[in-house]
Design a protein around this nucleic acid. Structure first.
Lengths: 152, 152
DNA sequence: ATACGTGCAAATACTTTGCAGGCTT
DNA sequence: AAGCCTGCAAAGTATTTGCACGTAT
């Protein structure tokens, strides 16, 4: 089971898409893209911003937001909205896919579900909608946390 | 196929739950409960507020928000968060269930899916999580809108 | 030279909170 | 009389926007 150089490719992929779409690859954008292409933890804008300013302290939050808007537009980042918290962003896998969130440890994980794709078929068949975006979000207690206490 | 007096029961159900939980059924709350128990269109706080002040013009937005917090707490309303818009609230069916949103006409509908419940089993089995909340949200173009133009 | 991108700050929108007064029991 | 609930207004938070400057082509 070989590990592919996925992150690097992903960064290049994002960069290329950006340039193809007619946008410039500025230093700020490079850093943001790098972060998004590598981080698997679905950071929110603030977390991205915090990471960015470690490398380029003058960067402004506005730039992060603007870049996220950009990347959303060209579908190189997937935006996850849930609850009342800030949106999270997935640049590693910009296609919508299910997520599960542990309400105790606040961990936020991807999910691979057999039934998921079947669901899409069923929805289109049943509703007649052309589905553009589908997001499954699950909250619960992860196995690690479950053992510890039995509280809420 | 007899129509059951579901709304009326639902309103009474909500009222009872509220009182059982130790809260008072004030005029403001009665109106809000009535709206939530009858409306199937998943209103957001502002829509609820607009409807409330038609009946009791002195009501404040804060009261609407506070009542929603209350109802969430006793699980008599289901909160739907999606995208960057305001939360929507479902008092008719306060248990989580899938929704589909038409990005053109902004309609927001319930969904009944066979595969949905199976999904929950698969998730618990596969992840070991104890699922507390599961929300499926779909965006797309509804059949009505689909015919009109082929734009985005 | 031009157009795009950035940073700052102001603006916006939404929701929550503190507090004083009123109503119900 | 006590406590809960309300309305008002202020505060808080997250995100977007306008603008002038800078930079790359």
């Amino acid at each position: 089971m070989r590990e592919r150089k996925k992150s690097i490719n992903r960064f290049e992929q994002m960069s290329n898409k950006l340039k193809e779409a007619g946008y410039k690859l500025t230093p700020q954008r490079m850093i943001i893209l790098k972060i998004l292409s590598e981080r698997k933890d679905h950071p929110n804008p603030d977390a991205i911003y915090s990471a960015v300013i470690k490398q380029l302290p003058t960067t402004s939050p506005a730039t992060v937001y603007k870049t996220l808007v950009l990347l959303k537009k060209i579908n190189e980042v997937f935006e996850i909205s849930y609850s009342n918290e800030s949106n999270r962003y997935d640049g590693v896998n910009p296609i919508q896919h299910p997520h599960i969130f542990c309400t105790k440890c606040k961990k936020f994980s991807d999910l691979d579900l057999l039934a998921y794709n079947k669901l899409l078929e069923e929805i289109e068949l049943q509703t007649g909608y052309k589905v553009k975006n589908m997001s499954l979000f699950i909250e619960g207690i992860c196995p690690d946390c479950d053992g510890r206490t039995d509280g809420n």
